[in-house]
């Protein structure tokens, strides 16, 4: 069967494209006038329920994240504050962007003999695939800090060192599954930069 047989031939009017262009214009103009009307009403304080835009005024108003969202990495700690990481390099091996650099070292304790001396993640190369989290046999790396602002003025400051990764904290309050919460333009309290683990320059 010819592929073209699936489509019925266009009539003369359709071939001028004018009716379809008009339909498109009707849709865009409908949105234009409706939204303009809503904006004007809101501007004069007549009503505030209909909105002319779906925009969230970031960064003053932030949406909550879906729980599975992958945000900036952190290294988890044991109860005694040492990193859970044993420098097995599973994450480094699986990393498709090759942005993880681990140097292993020895520790005198016999139970945990291998520890990371260096654990760098180059955010400039990271693709946020989350494979490192999946691969980790020790649950030592997670991506639940809720930090999504990573812009920086230098490449060097995009490299997360072991100390920075360990200083990151999880922020479960930024995440929700509830649609209603998500859509409510609820302002989330802003973290300070040091809390977010982002170095100021």
């Amino acid at each position: 069967m010819n592929v073209h047989d699936k489509y019925k031939p266009l009539t003369f009017w359709e071939r001028t494209y004018l009716p379809r262009i008009w339909d498109g214009l009707v849709i865009t103009m409908h949105h234009f006038f409706r939204n303009l009307w809503h904006f004007i009403l809101a501007r004069f304080g007549v009503q505030r329920e209909w909105k002319g835009a779906v925009t969230f005024q970031y960064p003053e108003i932030r949406r909550l994240f879906h729980p599975r969202l992958r945000t900036m990495h952190r290294l988890t700690k044991r109860d005694d504050g040492t990193p859970r990481c044993v420098a097995c390099m599973m994450c480094e091996t699986v990393c498709p962007a090759k942005c993880i650099y681990i140097v292993a070292g020895q520790r005198p304790e016999k139970e945990i003999e291998k520890v990371p001396v260096k654990f760098d993640i180059d955010l400039g190369m990271c693709v946020f695939c989350g494979y490192c989290v999946e691969a980790c046999p020790e649950d030592a790396i997670r991506m639940d800090t809720g930090v999504i602002e990573m812009a920086s003025y230098s490449r060097q400051s995009l490299i997360l060192t072991k100390e920075r990764l360990l200083s990151h904290v999880p922020h479960p309050e930024y995440y929700t599954m509830r649609k209603d919460l998500e859509l409510a333009a609820k302002p989330v309290q802003l973290r300070t930069e040091s809390e977010a683990g982002v170095e100021a320059h």
Binding site: A87, C88, E113, K114, P137
Partner: peptide, 8 residues
């Protein structure tokens, strides 16, 4: 302890 074992 394959993750820390050099033989892995």
């Amino acid at each position: 302890d394959c993750p820390v074992c050099d033989q892995a």
